[in-house]
Computed example of a mutant assay.
Amino acid sequence: MARVGHGDRDAFTVLYDAVVATVFGIVVKVVRDRAQSQEVAQEVMINLWRQAARYRPEQCTVKT
């Protein structure tokens, strides 16, 4: 997350691959529409990229 917070796109790719399935699975359960869930999951990942510099590991894990 520290590298993502500094704009490291390769680190974001690794993070994306690690969490996108979990994010999508949660979104599908809430939204219940697969196409809309893809859009929402994409927005979540964009927000993760934008907010990565604010991440504090002492407060929570990346997945939470």
Rank of each mutant, 00 (worst) to 15 (best):
V23Q: 08
A2G: 08
T22R: 06
V44Y: 11
R3N: 15
H6W: 07
P57C: 03
L48K: 10
I26Q: 02
R3W: 09
R9V: 06
Q38A: 07
Q38T: 06
I46D: 04
A52M: 00
V14W: 07
P57Q: 02
L15A: 10
T61V: 14
T13Q: 12
T64K: 06
V20I: 15
V30F: 14
R54E: 10
M45G: 12
A41D: 02
H6L: 09
N47G: 12
N47M: 14
H6E: 14
V23F: 10
M45A: 08
T13R: 15
V4L: 15
Q42S: 15
F12C: 02
F12R: 01
R9Y: 03
V31E: 11
M1W: 08
M1L: 09
V14R: 10
V28F: 02
V19T: 00
V20C: 14
V4Q: 09
I46P: 01
D10P: 01
Q51W: 04
R56F: 05
A21P: 03
T13C: 10
K63T: 04
V44Q: 13
R50F: 03
F12S: 04
I26C: 04
R54S: 10
V30G: 12
V19D: 03
E58T: 13
A53P: 00
A2S: 11
I46N: 06
Q51E: 07
Y16T: 15
I46H: 05
E43M: 06
R50Y: 03
R3Y: 13
V14Y: 13
E39S: 13
C60W: 15
A41G: 06
R3Q: 13
I26S: 03
E58D: 13
R34H: 06
F24E: 02
T22F: 04
V30Q: 09
E43Q: 07
A18N: 00
V30T: 12
V27M: 02
A53E: 08
W49C: 01
R54I: 11
T61A: 05
T22M: 05
F24P: 00
V28A: 02
A41R: 03
V44M: 14
G25Y: 02
G5W: 14
V31S: 13
R3M: 15
R9D: 00
K63W: 03
V23W: 13
V28S: 00
E58C: 07
D8Q: 00
M1G: 12
K63N: 03
V28Y: 01
